[in-house]
Nucleic acid binder design. Structure first.
Length: 107
DNA sequence: AGATTGACCGTGT
DNA sequence: GACACGGCCAATC
């Protein structure tokens, strides 16, 4: 029995989870890394986002740092990212910081 | 194959 | 609360 897991690749898993993030919610890099199987692979997650294929297949705009601070966005920059999140219904406590207290995704 | 990078995280001061 | 340092992981040069 070839029990080859479908998404064995760390990258594949991260992408899948990123798509599972509901609208109006956000997840942290560390959170995705942990779900993907690497609790400390937060940096690797960030690299995947930077090399992402398309914003439609990978809602990387719903991924923020553990402090809720918005970090890079390969499709228009932080400015655009903030616009999208705000449109999704995410609450911002600062210019580039979101309220994880209410916007953090609960897997 | 080895070294460096990168959209990070946690802890200490 | 802000700044500095080290550690971890995967992709890329």
């Amino acid at each position: 029995m070839y029990q080859k897991e479908n998404q064995n690749s760390f990258t594949q898993k991260v992408k899948s989870f990123a798509q599972k993030i509901p609208k109006g919610k956000v997840a942290t890099y560390g959170q995705l890394a942990k779900l993907a199987g690497s609790p400390g692979g937060s940096r690797a997650v960030g690299m995947i986002m930077s090399k992402n294929d398309s914003p439609k297949t990978l809602p990387c705009h719903r991924v923020v740092s553990s402090t809720g601070k918005l970090t890079g966005y390969a499709f228009g920059g932080i400015i655009h990212k903030k616009e999208i999140l705000e449109k999704e219904g995410v609450v911002f406590i600062n210019k580039n910081t979101i309220d994880l207290k209410s916007a953090l995704w609960h897997p």
